[in-house]
């Protein structure tokens, strides 16, 4: 089982986690047209690469961010949301 590094609980097996999708900031609903909003809601970027992902450590209900290379499945680092950075 793959190990995921939780910033609070440390390295744990992936079975303790729930995956929350790629981090996608919500655009201002009042400032975008219908197509842009629909794209935010339904479309995802499929190209592989290092992505920021939401992960939740289920036993402690801790949401955090993982930077993972979706091609090699290598985890680069993880941190809490308030330590978020742009990549």
């Amino acid at each position: 089982m793959k190990l995921i590094p939780c910033p609070i609980n440390g390295l744990r097996p992936v079975g303790e986690f729930v995956y929350g999708g790629e981090v996608r900031p919500m655009p201002d609903p009042n400032a975008v047209d219908d197509d842009t909003w629909a794209s935010y809601v339904f479309n995802r970027t499929g190209a592989p690469g290092v992505k920021q992902e939401w992960w939740c450590h289920s036993p402690s209900n801790t949401w955090f961010i993982v930077e993972r290379n979706t091609l090699t499945d290598e985890i680069m680092q993880s941190y809490l949301y308030d330590e978020m950075r742009t990549i």
Binding site: V18, G20, W54, C56, S58, N61, W63, Y81
Partner: peptide, 20 residues
């Protein structure tokens, strides 16, 4: 739902706390 609400408030940081 508890999990998702927790995520939303992680982003919004409204002055409130949720207990399951």
């Amino acid at each position: 739902i508890h999990r998702e609400l927790t995520r939303w408030n992680t982003i919004w940081q409204l002055d409130c706390g949720i207990v399951n």
